[in-house]
Design a binder for these strands. Structure first.
Length: 553
RNA sequence: UGGGCCGUCGCCAAGUGGUAAGGCUCUGGGUUUUGAUCUCAGCAUGCGUAGGUUCGAAUCCUACCGGCCCAGCCA
């Protein structure tokens, strides 16, 4: 059932114990997003955990939209959330669920609570309710409406439901203990009036159940065995259990909390992400620099790399911040294995091969992937004029520099070794062309004179290539903790998080690029066709991530 | 200063009384027509601190210190 390679996390241990003891016969989890925004890397962890556990233990996982607050939710988000979950590689069991599917049942159970004297309609205003609730160090006071009769409560609750009261005029509260040290237990509100149109139930209701009242019951109705949430819900657990014990629910789910996933050099709060979008710092929620699932997809991160990353961070109750390098490792690991290779010159510098006939044409061949033979071979047109990257040529350099230098040799990847003779400059002194010579008979072999090339650089034929645009992304923030202690995260936005290169030279074989997975542009990094902005006549690539670089560029 | 939770290498994270796994990062070596990949090696005499129990403690006890969460008719 479990591979003894990796130690079990604390939730897996609980599950295995429950399975072994017979407390449950089959695991059932759920991913319960509120459809009020876009999913981000933090949600990815919850998705991977809930769906992953279901898969590992041959159970199932529901997708349930926790839609108890119509003012903040929208159908638009249920669609994007469904897409993101599936893109990550998971499938929920059966139809999707909505907490709103249970509004009738929840309402009936609330009436039952009233009849048992466990709930009451409270007329305290929100402000008054706050005062009566006491503080962290002081007990609260009982509401003056706490002892209304069952009949009166029933009548009032019915009027609430019928829309006879204004929003905020009253609420339904459960009678627990106003002096409880856990604030959640001080007669929490379970129904409030909201005269808002609901994206699923329309205008059927004007009262809506609170999260605490609805969530656990939804779990019970769906037969969820392990209700997994983040740490901040921990003090809600006694309340969760209270409802399960005091209501005639069909099953007895349990709540377990784990610490949320935080990554440095980024922010994930919805408010902050929205600010980045609203103020135009990024192009939208799916900007490739955003930590949203859609942003990462746009950038070229693969579902597997995200799953692997989440897996690598573990499941614990310890607050922490994972270093982005761990995410980047997972992305490179997957892409190195699966990305087709190609050559693209980002900052072109023309090289004229003076001893190569003007009308001569050759076609070089190159493997689609250096370590795999299931990738198609590429054909690379070669002629007298080629482009190399400006960074790959210097008039003079020390021995550490392994690229093209005047008077020295370098290997053109998958082609000849060449030797540089002269740098041609314009009036401002900028090098605009390099004159070099091809060393005969060096395709696929070393020079006959025994003078080998010390390095390898990539190139593209100057007359037979594809022009393209490349967008280089870097981290969105310059601070490791952009929103730490009172700082304004907007002040640490990285002004160089996006650099656009419009004159890139791409090898001919990518004129109709693959849109399933990024390519590795050799010696540069991984680049993914921009699914939003790229056009057949104007290709645009997003840099997903650069290659690991142990040389001081 | 009410309650709850958490503190093991720079970052994640195993470990649950028998003498500190692993991954990321970093450093050094080898292979290499990608300064990539791959590969080899190094990286906590110490587990928030201080005491105590024990033959033996990251693991048990006590007291401190530090961090996070809770006073929405948000989730």
């Amino acid at each position: 059932m479990s591979d003894n390679k990796k130690p079990l996390n604390f939730i897996e241990k609980i599950i295995e114990d429950d399975l072994a003891s017979g407390r449950i016969s089959r695991l059932k989890t759920r991913f319960p997003p509120e459809p009020n925004g876009y999913l981000h890397i933090g949600h990815a962890k919850s998705i991977c955990l809930n769906f992953g556990l279901a898969k590992k233990y041959k159970g199932s996982c529901n997708l349930r939209f926790d839609d108890t607050n119509p003012e903040k939710e929208d159908e638009e988000f249920v669609e994007s959330i469904k897409q993101d979950v599936q893109w990550l590689g998971f499938q929920w069991e059966g139809d999707i669920h909505f907490t709103s599917d249970y509004f009738d049942q929840l309402y009936e159970w609330a009436i039952g609570l009233i009849k048992e004297g466990k709930a009451y309609v409270c007329d305290l205003s929100p402000d008054e309710a706050r005062e009566y609730r006491g503080s962290l160090t002081e007990p609260g006071k009982n509401s003056p409406y706490r002892n209304r009769s069952v009949e009166e409560n029933l009548e009032l609750f019915e009027k609430m439901r019928a829309g006879e009261f204004d929003e905020g005029a009253c609420s339904l509260r459960v009678k627990i203990d106003m002096a409880h040290p856990n604030m959640q237990m001080r007669d929490p509100i379970i129904y409030r009036i909201k005269k808002a149109m609901h994206h699923q139930t329309g205008d059927k209701w004007c009262i809506y159940p609170s999260y605490d009242y609805a969530h656990g019951q939804g779990d019970a109705i769906e037969g969820i065995t392990h209700s997994i949430c983040t740490l901040e819900f921990e003090e809600h657990r006694p309340l969760y259990d209270w409802f399960i014990q005091n209501l005639p629910v069909p099953s007895e789910p349990h709540q377990y909390e784990f610490s949320r996933l935080n990554v440095n050099y980024t922010v994930t709060s919805k408010r902050k992400l929205k600010q980045l979008v609203d103020e135009g710092v990024v192009s939208g929620w799916d900007d490739p620099r955003m930590p949203t699932i859609s942003g990462m997809r746009h950038r070229g991160y693969t579902p597997k790399s995200i799953r692997d990353f989440v897996e690598s961070t573990g499941v614990t109750r310890t607050d922490g911040v994972v270093d982005v390098s761990q995410l980047e490792f997972s992305v490179r690991e997957d892409l190195n294995e699966n990305a087709p290779r190609a050559m693209c010159v980002l900052n072109p510098l023309k090289v004229v091969l003076t001893n190569y006939p003007e009308d001569k044409r050759e076609t070089m061949t190159a493997p689609g992937h250096p370590n795999r033979d299931d990738f198609a071979e590429r054909l690379l047109p070669f002629s007298r004029e080629i482009y190399i990257d400006r960074d790959d040529f210097r008039e003079e350099a020390n021995k550490k520099y392994k690229r093209l230098v005047l008077g020295k040799r370098v290997r053109l990847r998958n082609a000849y070794i060449i030797e540089a003779d002269e740098a041609i400059k314009d009036d401002s002194g900028e090098i605009i062309e390099v004159r070099a010579r091809v060393i005969e008979n060096t395709v696929g072999k070393n020079p006959e004179d025994g003078i080998k090339a010390k390095g390898v650089i990539h190139w593209v034929c100057a007359t037979n290539h594809v022009n393209c645009e490349v967008r280089l992304y870097d981290r969105l923030f310059t601070e490791e903790f952009p929103d730490a202690g009172g700082k304004d995260f907007m002040n640490s936005v990285n002004p160089e998080s996006l650099k656009v290169l419009t004159n890139c030279k791409l090898e001919m074989s990518l004129s109709k690029p693959n849109t399933d997975i990024p390519y590795q542009f050799e010696r540069e990094g991984y680049f993914f066709v921009d699914l939003k902005d790229s056009r057949p006549e104007h290709l645009i690539f997003n840099r997903t991530i650069g290659l690991r670089d142990t040389w001081n560029k």
